[in-house]
Design a protein around this nucleic acid. Sequence first.
DNA 1: ATTGACTCTGACATTAATGTCACGGTCTAT
DNA 2: ATAGACCGTGACATTAATGTCAGAGTCAAT
Lengths: 148, 148
Amino acid sequence: MSRSIIKLRSAIRLKEGWTLKIGELSKATGASIRSLRYYEKQGLIAPARTESGYREYHKFAVEQVKTIRLYLNLGLSTEQIAGFLHCVLMNKEAFCNEVLPVYQQKLQELDEQIQTLVRIRSNLEERIQSILSVRTDNESMEGTNDES
Amino acid sequence: MSRSIIKLRSAIRLKEGWTLKIGELSKATGASIRSLRYYEKQGLIAPARTESGYREYHKFAVEQVKTIRLYLNLGLSTEQIAGFLHCVLMNKEAFCNEVLPVYQQKLQELDEQIQTLVRIRSNLEERIQSILSVRTDNESMEGTNDES
DNA sequence: ATTGACTCTGACATTAATGTCACGGTCTAT
DNA sequence: ATAGACCGTGACATTAATGTCAGAGTCAAT
């Protein structure tokens, strides 16, 4: 079909670097192709499409995806990220009012999780010490039977 | 069919309290019926069956289930628990050699998880402080156009 | 006998991001 | 035009314990 149009598009893409295909974006960002498609389904990124259906990412998508991954690494969900991504891509984070409440909620969740883990850790530590002290006692009275 | 046998069995159960049905065990332990069946499938508990197929738990099963839940609350998996449950039900924990390595591995996992969460927490805290300080700066410049 | 409470099994759902596979279309260099 | 690399969609899997439902059988009291 319209070969000439496709060739023109290709020439532009190659010469000016305006767009990336999904594999190129994946390499540029470290996100897997699978993840890039997932981010799109979650409404975090909306690439254009070529006539043949290929995703066509603007070069700014590289920074956009890196930003998404930064927030994911903070433990935020794609849904939470979707709530302020549009703003933070255009402004400094501090000027996006949606960010702070999400951060503060996440901070509270983290504190609860840490507290839980630390409590379990203490319990476990005590039990280990208890076992070790019994072992020490028994070593000092050589002659008793260990069992599994 | 053999009504007399069933009646005899029932009489024994009621008079001596030798066995519990699953609902009774559930109430006695706080574990849901669903969970009790799950523990059985995971090999943690093996109730007898009546002629009609009902689970028939020995009264010691109450302590057994409470023990299982104690270990689950320490974050151990049913598979790990299965590895030493038999021993700890008959001996003191300290005499079961399978326990300590599991505890130590779990302790290490906990330390890693806590470390990760604390790291994320610090990052988040910094970002929150950064946003708050920007907000404060802007408030104090109310009406001025100066910028540093 | 009937009823209501209890039990049985088996199956599907839950959470969230990612991996992986199958099958088929597109692009590009030869 | 053909091969090989790339891309598309859709589906299933992953983890672990638990919830929930459906359909059917059992028990006990009337």
